[in-house]
Protein backbone atom coordinates (compact mmCIF):
# COMPACT_ATOMS: atom_id res chain seq x y z
CA UNK A 1 0.00 0.00 0.00
CA UNK A 2 1.12 3.53 -0.70
CA UNK A 3 1.62 6.01 2.10
CA UNK A 4 -0.27 9.01 0.67
CA UNK A 5 -3.80 7.48 0.84
CA UNK A 6 -3.15 6.33 4.42
CA UNK A 7 -1.99 9.83 5.33
CA UNK A 8 -5.07 11.34 3.69
CA UNK A 9 -7.35 8.98 5.60
CA UNK A 10 -5.68 9.79 8.93
CA UNK A 11 -5.84 13.52 8.22
CA UNK A 12 -9.56 13.18 7.47
CA UNK A 13 -9.96 11.46 10.86
CA UNK A 14 -8.42 14.45 12.66
CA UNK A 15 -10.55 16.92 10.73
CA UNK A 16 -13.84 15.10 11.20
CA UNK A 17 -13.58 14.63 14.95
CA UNK A 18 -14.67 17.94 16.44
CA UNK A 19 -12.78 17.45 19.71
CA UNK A 20 -9.37 17.35 17.97
CA UNK A 21 -9.46 20.75 16.23
CA UNK A 22 -11.12 21.90 19.47
CA UNK A 23 -8.07 20.85 21.49
CA UNK A 24 -5.80 22.85 19.18
CA UNK A 25 -8.05 25.88 19.52
CA UNK A 26 -7.86 25.46 23.30
CA UNK A 27 -4.06 25.37 23.02
CA UNK A 28 -4.10 28.78 21.35
CA UNK A 29 -6.70 30.29 23.67
CA UNK A 30 -5.35 29.02 26.99
CA UNK A 31 -1.71 29.82 26.21
CA UNK A 32 -2.46 33.34 24.99
CA UNK A 33 -4.71 34.06 27.97
CA UNK A 34 -2.17 32.91 30.55
CA UNK A 35 0.64 34.77 28.80
CA UNK A 36 -1.46 37.93 28.90
CA UNK A 37 -2.01 37.48 32.64
CA UNK A 38 1.68 36.76 33.28
CA UNK A 39 2.74 39.78 31.24
CA UNK A 40 0.46 42.10 33.16
CA UNK A 41 1.70 40.83 36.54
CA UNK A 42 4.54 42.14 38.62
CA UNK A 43 7.99 41.82 37.08
CA UNK A 44 10.02 42.57 40.20
CA UNK A 45 11.12 38.94 40.75
CA UNK A 46 14.93 38.67 40.89
CA UNK A 47 14.94 35.65 38.58
CA UNK A 48 12.75 37.51 36.10
CA UNK A 49 13.14 36.29 32.51
CA UNK A 50 11.08 38.43 30.11
CA UNK A 51 11.00 35.77 27.34
CA UNK A 52 9.83 33.02 29.68
CA UNK A 53 7.25 35.30 31.28
CA UNK A 54 5.80 36.20 27.87
CA UNK A 55 5.67 32.53 26.83
CA UNK A 56 4.69 31.12 30.24
CA UNK A 57 1.11 30.54 29.09
CA UNK A 58 2.54 27.43 27.41
CA UNK A 59 2.96 25.74 30.80
CA UNK A 60 -0.81 25.32 31.33
CA UNK A 61 -1.50 25.50 27.58
CA UNK A 62 0.60 22.42 26.77
CA UNK A 63 -2.06 20.29 28.42
CA UNK A 64 -4.23 21.00 25.37
CA UNK A 65 -1.41 19.82 23.08
CA UNK A 66 -0.97 16.66 25.17
CA UNK A 67 -4.73 16.09 25.06
CA UNK A 68 -4.72 16.50 21.28
CA UNK A 69 -2.02 13.86 20.83
CA UNK A 70 -3.54 11.47 23.35
CA UNK A 71 -7.09 11.72 21.94
CA UNK A 72 -6.04 11.38 18.31
CA UNK A 73 -4.62 7.96 19.22
CA UNK A 74 -7.05 6.89 21.94
CA UNK A 75 -10.06 7.34 19.64
CA UNK A 76 -8.72 4.23 17.90
CA UNK A 77 -8.97 2.20 21.08
CA UNK A 78 -12.68 2.78 21.62
CA UNK A 79 -14.84 -0.22 20.79
CA UNK A 80 -13.57 -1.95 17.67
CA UNK A 81 -12.24 1.18 15.95
CA UNK A 82 -8.66 -0.12 15.73
CA UNK A 83 -9.83 -3.34 14.08
CA UNK A 84 -11.63 -1.32 11.44
CA UNK A 85 -8.58 0.88 10.87
CA UNK A 86 -6.15 -2.04 10.65
CA UNK A 87 -8.46 -4.03 8.40
CA UNK A 88 -8.27 -1.07 6.00
CA UNK A 89 -4.50 -0.61 6.49
CA UNK A 90 -2.91 -3.91 7.60
CA UNK A 91 0.63 -2.44 7.48
CA UNK A 92 0.60 -1.36 11.09
CA UNK A 93 3.94 0.47 11.13
CA UNK A 94 2.86 2.55 8.16
CA UNK A 95 -0.49 3.21 9.75
CA UNK A 96 1.09 4.43 12.98
CA UNK A 97 3.57 6.61 11.08
CA UNK A 98 0.66 8.29 9.27
CA UNK A 99 -1.10 8.77 12.59
CA UNK A 100 2.00 10.43 14.08
CA UNK A 101 2.38 12.68 11.02
CA UNK A 102 -1.18 14.03 11.25
CA UNK A 103 -0.61 14.78 14.93
CA UNK A 104 2.82 16.38 14.41
CA UNK A 105 2.05 18.81 11.62
CA UNK A 106 -1.09 20.50 13.02
CA UNK A 107 0.50 20.60 16.50
CA UNK A 108 3.60 22.27 15.08
CA UNK A 109 1.70 24.84 13.02
CA UNK A 110 -0.77 25.73 15.77
CA UNK A 111 2.12 25.66 18.25
CA UNK A 112 4.09 28.23 16.23
CA UNK A 113 1.03 30.46 15.90
CA UNK A 114 0.31 30.08 19.60
CA UNK A 115 3.87 30.97 20.59
CA UNK A 116 3.82 34.05 18.38
CA UNK A 117 0.47 35.21 19.78
CA UNK A 118 1.62 34.55 23.35
CA UNK A 119 4.81 36.53 22.84
CA UNK A 120 2.86 39.48 21.42
CA UNK A 121 0.31 39.69 24.26
CA UNK A 122 2.98 38.90 26.87
CA UNK A 123 5.25 41.68 25.63
CA UNK A 124 2.36 44.09 25.43
CA UNK A 125 1.70 43.44 29.11
CA UNK A 126 5.37 43.65 30.12
CA UNK A 127 5.87 46.94 28.34
CA UNK A 128 9.28 48.45 29.11
CA UNK A 129 10.37 45.38 31.11
CA UNK A 130 10.68 43.44 27.85
CA UNK A 131 12.62 46.08 25.97
CA UNK A 132 15.90 44.31 26.46
CA UNK A 133 14.74 41.20 24.56
CA UNK A 134 16.83 40.53 21.46
CA UNK A 135 15.29 39.45 18.15
CA UNK A 136 17.38 36.27 18.09
CA UNK A 137 16.11 35.16 21.47
CA UNK A 138 12.51 35.91 20.49
CA UNK A 139 12.71 33.93 17.23
CA UNK A 140 14.37 31.06 19.08
CA UNK A 141 11.63 31.21 21.73
CA UNK A 142 8.76 31.10 19.22
CA UNK A 143 10.23 28.36 16.99
CA UNK A 144 11.38 26.33 19.99
CA UNK A 145 7.97 26.67 21.61
CA UNK A 146 6.21 25.37 18.47
CA UNK A 147 8.58 22.40 18.27
CA UNK A 148 8.20 21.78 22.01
CA UNK A 149 4.39 21.64 21.75
CA UNK A 150 4.62 19.25 18.79
CA UNK A 151 7.01 17.00 20.74
CA UNK A 152 4.70 16.96 23.76
CA UNK A 153 1.69 16.05 21.56
CA UNK A 154 3.69 13.19 20.01
CA UNK A 155 4.96 12.08 23.42
CA UNK A 156 1.34 11.76 24.57
CA UNK A 157 0.45 9.95 21.33
CA UNK A 158 3.14 7.35 21.92
CA UNK A 159 2.07 6.81 25.54
CA UNK A 160 -1.58 6.52 24.47
CA UNK A 161 -0.69 3.82 21.92
CA UNK A 162 1.23 1.94 24.60
CA UNK A 163 -1.48 2.25 27.27
CA UNK A 164 -4.32 1.94 24.72
CA UNK A 165 -6.31 4.54 26.62
CA UNK A 166 -6.70 8.30 26.55
CA UNK A 167 -7.91 8.48 30.14
CA UNK A 168 -4.91 6.53 31.41
CA UNK A 169 -2.54 8.67 29.35
CA UNK A 170 -3.97 11.97 30.56
CA UNK A 171 -4.13 10.84 34.17
CA UNK A 172 -0.45 10.03 33.90
CA UNK A 173 0.77 13.08 31.99
CA UNK A 174 -1.38 15.93 33.34
CA UNK A 175 -0.41 15.45 37.00
CA UNK A 176 3.16 14.93 35.83
CA UNK A 177 3.23 18.24 33.96
CA UNK A 178 1.29 20.21 36.58
CA UNK A 179 2.61 18.76 39.80
CA UNK A 180 5.81 16.75 39.56
CA UNK A 181 7.72 19.14 37.32
CA UNK A 182 6.36 22.12 39.22
CA UNK A 183 7.40 20.84 42.62
CA UNK A 184 10.88 19.55 41.81
CA UNK A 185 11.36 21.92 38.88
CA UNK A 186 13.04 24.72 40.81
CA UNK A 187 15.84 22.43 41.87
CA UNK A 188 18.08 23.02 38.85
CA UNK A 189 21.15 20.94 38.32
CA UNK A 190 19.39 17.70 39.21
CA UNK A 191 17.84 14.93 37.13
CA UNK A 192 14.73 17.10 37.01
CA UNK A 193 16.48 19.03 34.22
CA UNK A 194 16.17 15.95 32.06
CA UNK A 195 12.43 15.40 32.47
CA UNK A 196 10.66 15.53 29.11
CA UNK A 197 8.83 18.78 29.79
CA UNK A 198 11.48 20.57 31.93
CA UNK A 199 14.29 19.97 29.45
CA UNK A 200 12.30 21.26 26.48
CA UNK A 201 11.13 24.35 28.34
CA UNK A 202 14.70 25.71 28.45
CA UNK A 203 14.12 26.93 24.90
CA UNK A 204 11.53 29.35 26.29
CA UNK A 205 14.09 31.17 28.44
CA UNK A 206 16.25 34.12 27.53
CA UNK A 207 18.95 33.15 30.01
CA UNK A 208 19.72 29.68 31.27
CA UNK A 209 22.26 27.88 33.36
CA UNK A 210 22.99 24.24 34.05
CA UNK A 211 24.13 21.42 31.81
CA UNK A 212 21.52 21.86 29.09
CA UNK A 213 21.09 24.76 26.67
CA UNK A 214 17.90 25.65 24.80
CA UNK A 215 18.47 23.35 21.81
CA UNK A 216 20.08 20.49 23.68
CA UNK A 217 17.16 20.70 26.13
CA UNK A 218 14.74 20.39 23.24
CA UNK A 219 16.86 17.48 22.02
CA UNK A 220 16.31 15.71 25.34
CA UNK A 221 12.55 16.15 24.94
CA UNK A 222 12.85 14.82 21.38
CA UNK A 223 14.57 11.70 22.72
CA UNK A 224 11.76 11.14 25.22
CA UNK A 225 9.24 11.57 22.39
CA UNK A 226 11.11 9.18 20.12
CA UNK A 227 11.18 6.59 22.90
CA UNK A 228 7.42 6.98 23.54
CA UNK A 229 6.62 6.71 19.82
CA UNK A 230 8.78 3.63 19.39
CA UNK A 231 7.13 1.98 22.39
CA UNK A 232 3.71 2.88 20.97
CA UNK A 233 4.64 1.56 17.53
CA UNK A 234 5.95 -1.66 19.05
CA UNK A 235 2.69 -2.11 20.93
CA UNK A 236 0.56 -1.46 17.83
CA UNK A 237 2.62 -3.85 15.73
CA UNK A 238 2.90 -6.73 18.14
CA UNK A 239 -0.37 -6.90 20.00
CA UNK A 240 -3.63 -8.38 18.81
CA UNK A 241 -5.93 -5.63 17.62
Amino acid sequence: MEFAPVLRSEWLKVRTLRSLPGALLALLAVTTAFSAIAGASDAADPGFDPLFTALSGVIPGQIAAVTFGAMAVSSEFQQGALRLSLAAVPQRGRWFAAKAAVIALPALLVGLGTAFAALLVGRAGLGAAADGLGTGAQVRGVVGCGVYLMLMALFAAGIAALLRSGVATLSLLVPFILVVSFVIGDATGTVADFLPDKAGQLVLRETYDGTLGPWSGLGVTALWTAAALLAGAWSVRHRDA
Binding site: T16, L17, R18, S19, S75, Q78, Q79, G80, A81, R83, L84, A87
Partner: peptide, 13 residues
Amino acid sequence: ALLDAQAAHGSRT
Protein backbone atom coordinates in the same frame (compact mmCIF):
# COMPACT_ATOMS: atom_id res chain seq x y z
CA ALA B 1 -15.98 -7.25 6.99
CA LEU B 2 -18.37 -6.27 9.73
CA LEU B 3 -17.00 -7.25 13.12
CA ASP B 4 -18.53 -4.78 15.55
CA ALA B 5 -21.31 -2.33 14.77
CA GLN B 6 -20.08 -0.08 17.60
CA ALA B 7 -16.71 0.49 15.91
CA ALA B 8 -17.72 3.78 14.26
CA HIS B 9 -16.78 6.81 16.38
CA GLY B 10 -19.94 8.40 17.80
CA SER B 11 -18.80 11.95 17.06
CA ARG B 12 -18.34 11.41 13.35
CA THR B 13 -21.12 11.48 10.81
